[in-house]
Simulated scan of single mutants.
Amino acid sequence: MPDSKGLVLVVEDERHIADLQRLYLTREGFGVHVETDGRAGLAAARRLRPVAIVLDIALPGLDGVEVCRRLREDGDWTPVLLVTARDDEADRVLGLELGADDYVTKPFSPRELVARVKTVLRRAAGPPQAAVRRVGRVAVDPVRRTAEADGRPVELTATEFDLLAHLLRHPGRVFPREQLLAQVWGQADYRGSRTVDVHVAQLRAKLGDASPIRTVRGVGYSAADAAR
């Protein structure tokens, strides 16, 4: 039997959905632990330290957004993939703002979910690249996966880091949202462009006035020196 790729925590109160997630993640070599309510899911995340968390928003006990918020407040930046209903946009955006890395919308293909989990894990691990990237007052270290603004460390989710590093690798280049979705998220669906905007807003909030991210109206985003 191949070595496990790590434990994925699934927090899902619909048993048939949780069973499908377990089946497909197990086939890909992951260990899977399932909890069916938010409080148990939060406790399991703290106890088990999974490599990733698949987190339904609509949970009994604590909802998924609150679970994500508490994890991030604890300084736990385990990649989180939200599972949402089609009418959960407000909660989905809030979850992304609180530090979730990605989401899938019900009904979804189990294969898509597995692909998204693998993508957020790849982003969290990151390719080894020797050079520290710096634009203006912000720097990222792709090997250590750390970011600094004005010399102070900034805590980022795996997705936030990957987006910032991607922009800093190409200073001055303007990326349309659909390109960022394809190159950072691995998605080809432009309808997810709100995801890009939410993550950019969150990066700007964390980086403060040192943020090098510039909006090019009608086009997309680029990284340029912040004014001193």
Rank of each mutant, 00 (worst) to 15 (best):
M1C: 12
P171E: 04
K106H: 05
S193V: 15
K106E: 11
R134L: 01
V65M: 02
E89T: 04
E89Y: 07
V93K: 01
G61D: 07
W77Y: 13
D189N: 11
V117C: 07
A226E: 13
D37W: 02
R86W: 13
R134H: 08
T26I: 06
R152K: 13
D74V: 02
H16P: 13
A226H: 04
G6L: 07
Y24C: 01
P50A: 00
H33W: 11
E155Y: 00
R39T: 15
D197R: 04
R27V: 11
G41I: 07
Y24V: 02
P142S: 03
I17R: 02
G99P: 15
V132M: 07
L180C: 10
V120E: 11
S211A: 07
V184W: 09
V67A: 00
A100E: 09
V198G: 03
F108H: 08
L94I: 11
V10N: 03
V200R: 09
A43R: 08
V104D: 08
L25C: 03
V54Q: 06
S211D: 15
R111T: 10
L121F: 06
L55D: 11
E14A: 10
V143K: 14
D150Q: 14
H33D: 14
A226S: 07
V80L: 00
A223K: 13
Q179E: 15
D88W: 14
V10C: 02
A201P: 09
P79Q: 05
R49V: 10
P212M: 06
D3H: 11
A223T: 12
G41V: 06
L59H: 06
V216S: 08
S4K: 09
G64D: 03
V54W: 06
G192N: 15
L98P: 05
Q183C: 08
E73D: 10
V10T: 08
L94N: 09
S109E: 13
G186L: 02
G6V: 12
A147T: 14
V174D: 14
A147N: 11
T84F: 04
G41S: 07
R144E: 15
S193R: 12
L207V: 10
R204E: 09
R70D: 12
G99N: 08
L94G: 05
E89F: 04
A226W: 02
G61W: 01
D162T: 10
R228W: 11
R69V: 00
G31P: 00
A115D: 13
D76Y: 00
S222N: 09
L168R: 01
R27G: 06
A130Y: 02
A131F: 02
C68V: 03
P60G: 04
S109P: 03
R72W: 03
R137M: 07
G64W: 01
R204P: 11
G64V: 04
V200A: 04
E112R: 07
R46T: 10
I53K: 00
R22H: 14
V154K: 05
I57R: 00
F161A: 13
V104C: 01
P212F: 02
V11Y: 00
R92C: 07
C68W: 00
V83D: 02
T159H: 03
T26W: 12
R49H: 12
G29L: 08
P2G: 12
A188C: 08
I213Q: 12
D13K: 06
A227S: 14
A165Y: 04
V34Y: 01
G64F: 01
W185F: 13
A139I: 13
Q202V: 11
